[in-house]
């Protein structure tokens, strides 16, 4: 990758160290202020969980890091969102390049109505990579990472829609991994899944943090406790508390946090 590229410049040597930062971030939808000024630094190669009641802005905040809010009507941002020190909302940023680096897994599994193979290969194909052998290797590799390979290796040409919900979600993660992002955003990735599939995905997240920085929005506090290193509690568009997960769950500083995690509201 050339240094002239107007995306995020990645130096291979520090590839596995990516820091997310926000400075005075406010988000507006028309006149409504959804995020009310947040300063935050998210550590590299850790799992950070965002928790909070519905409508607290945690999803909106998550989607800032790959600019998915750009498609929402009336969206407006104040402040800065930085990845490795570079403001990703400045004019010169190439959004497609950014999203290659910052992968996303959505709430509901959303595989393309294509074959399993083509789903995983999609991200590479849109970059103009069509070499069959390379694609096959990448697809196999990605499916192995999400422990789906053994289940689907004979059905690679079958439609991804035919998979179960849990398999679909793992496929969506594999699809994201195939383009080698450095950061993965997950927006309640298990909320539409059964407990068994949820357990598999959680296990997967635990393994993935070796290589990736993961930010996950979750409704499920037990999940946050199980898988994350850091937890951030959001309420009404504000970041109330942000600390090591253990600390936040056992000994929160703020009363609001304590009320939420002990189930007194939300």
């Amino acid at each position: 990758m050339s240094k002239k590229e107007k995306g995020i410049v990645i130096d291979k040597s520090i590839k596995r160290k990516h820091k997310l930062e926000t400075k005075g971030v406010k988000v507006f939808y028309d006149d409504f202020m959804a995020i009310k000024g947040i300063d935050m630094t998210i550590k590299a190669n850790k799992v950070t969980a965002f928790i909070g009641p519905s409508g607290c802005g945690k999803s909106t905040f998550l989607r800032l890091f790959n600019r998915m809010n750009d498609y929402v009507d009336g969206f407006r941002l104040e402040g800065e969102v930085r990845i490795d020190g570079e403001n990703i909302y400045k004019k010169k940023i190439n959004v497609e390049q950014l999203r290659k680096q910052v992968g996303m897994v959505f709430q509901k599994p959303n595989p393309f109505p294509k074959s399993i193979f083509e789903n995983v290969a999609y991200g590479l194909r849109i970059q103009g990579i069509n070499d069959k052998r390379y694609l096959s290797e990448k697809v196999e590799d990605s499916l192995k990472q999400v422990a789906l390979w053994d289940e689907v290796k004979d059905d690679l040409n079958k439609s991804a829609i035919a998979l179960s919900g849990g398999q679909q979600q793992r496929l969506c993660i594999a699809r994201t991994l195939a383009v080698e992002p450095s950061i993965i955003l997950m927006d309640e990735p298990t909320s539409a899944l059964d407990p068994l599939s949820t357990a598999k995905i959680e296990e997967l997240i635990y393994e993935l943090k070796e290589k990736y920085s993961i930010v996950i929005v979750t409704h499920n506090m037990q999940q946050a406790g199980r898988i994350s290193d850091y937890t951030a509690f959001f309420y009404l568009g504000e970041l109330i508390e942000y600390d090591r997960t253990k600390k936040l769950f056992t000994n929160p500083e703020k009363q609001q946090t304590e009320n939420y995690i002990t189930g007194r509201f939300g």
Partner: peptide, 27 residues
């Protein structure tokens, strides 16, 4: 076409053109 497919494609770094012809038109 459900919006989730659009999001998936944009999330992977598709341009609108790629999203249209590779995902939405087939769907």
């Amino acid at each position: 076409v459900p919006n989730s497919l659009r999001e998936a494609a944009y999330g992977m770094g598709s341009t609108k053109l790629q999203n249209s012809f590779r995902v939405l038109v087939p769907a």
